[in-house]
Each structure stands twice: as structure tokens, then as C-alpha cells.
Amino acid sequence: MKSIIVLALGLGMSFLVNAQGIPVLEKVYSGKTSETSINASKKNPKTQTQDVPATLTIIKQDGPHVEFTYQNPNYKAYEIGTISPDGKKLQIAYKGGSGVYEINGNKLTGCGAGRVNEGPFGQWINTYYAWCDDLTAK
């Protein structure tokens, strides 16, 4: 019986230590996104690069689980993510792609990649993109 109590206390303590490593993210981050995209069609391949202003808004955070929106002048998406146990990374997933942010104080910096999968068939077939964000809490 004594070992069960010690085990339960030990597990409880480890959860408290892990919970302390998870930061509470700020509500709004803004900055810029650098994007590279390629339409790899055989008839008309085209590569495009651009830097655009961007905003990431936290909708809900429950411990390491995060729900947020990402928006730039041409795009708005609902995304989800999970903060690493050490509180230093936010891995995200969204329709068509994924990425990882480094959490450093009031900054989120990270990169990811995906495939465009919306719009008329001819516009999104074989279109891929990569991005990097540099965002700071307001």
C-alpha cells in the first residue's frame, strides 16, 4: 500500500513539473510571413516568392493544446497545435500542411510547408509552398 501512495505522489509531482514547462501564449502575434510557392505543372511551371504581413490569434489554449487562426492579406485559416513538454516548440497542423514554431519569450518564429488544396482543380494541382514566420506578441 505504501508503494502505491509513493507511486501516486511521484506521478502527481511529475505532472506538476511538466505543467510548469508549458507557457501560456499571448492572445495576438503579428509580423511577417515569407512564402515560396511553386506550381509544378508540366505546361506552365511557375515559382513565386513574397513577404506578407501576418497575424496569429490564439482562440483557446488548454495546457499544451492550442487553437488559433492565422491570417495574411490573401489567406485565413483555423489551425491547431501542441506545445512541447519543455515549452520551447509549438507544432502545428492545418488543412494542407504543417510546421513548427520556436517559442522564445513574446516571439514565435518558425517554418513549415504544405500543398494548396482549395479552389478550382486547375489552380491547385501540383502547387506546393513553404513558409517562415517571424511574429511578436502585441
Rank of each mutant, 00 (worst) to 15 (best):
L7W: 12
L9M: 15
L9H: 08
L9A: 15
G10K: 13
G12F: 15
G12D: 07
M13I: 12
M13E: 08
L16V: 06
N18W: 10
Q20N: 10
P23N: 13
V24T: 12
L25W: 06
L25H: 07
E26M: 05
E26C: 05
E26S: 10
G31N: 13
T33A: 11
S34W: 12
S34R: 15
T36R: 10
T36D: 03
S41W: 05
S41T: 09
K42A: 08
K43S: 09
N44R: 13
N44F: 09
P45L: 05
K46Y: 08
K46D: 03
T47G: 02
T49M: 12
D51H: 14
V52N: 08
T55H: 03
T55P: 04
I58Y: 10
I59K: 14
I59A: 07
Q61W: 13
D62L: 06
P64T: 08
E67L: 12
T69A: 02
Q71Y: 00
Q71K: 11
Q71N: 01
P73F: 01
N74P: 01
A77N: 10
A77E: 13
A77R: 13
Y78N: 11
Y78Q: 12
E79K: 14
E79P: 00
I80M: 14
T82R: 13
I83H: 11
S84Q: 06
S84K: 08
P85I: 08
D86A: 09
K89P: 01
L90R: 07
Q91I: 10
Q91D: 10
I92P: 08
I92V: 14
A93T: 11
Y94V: 01
Y94I: 01
G96S: 05
S98C: 04
G99H: 03
G99A: 02
Y101S: 01
Y101Q: 01
E102C: 00
K107F: 05
T109A: 09
G110R: 07
G110H: 03
G114A: 01
G119F: 05
P120K: 15
P120Q: 07
F121Y: 15
G122R: 14
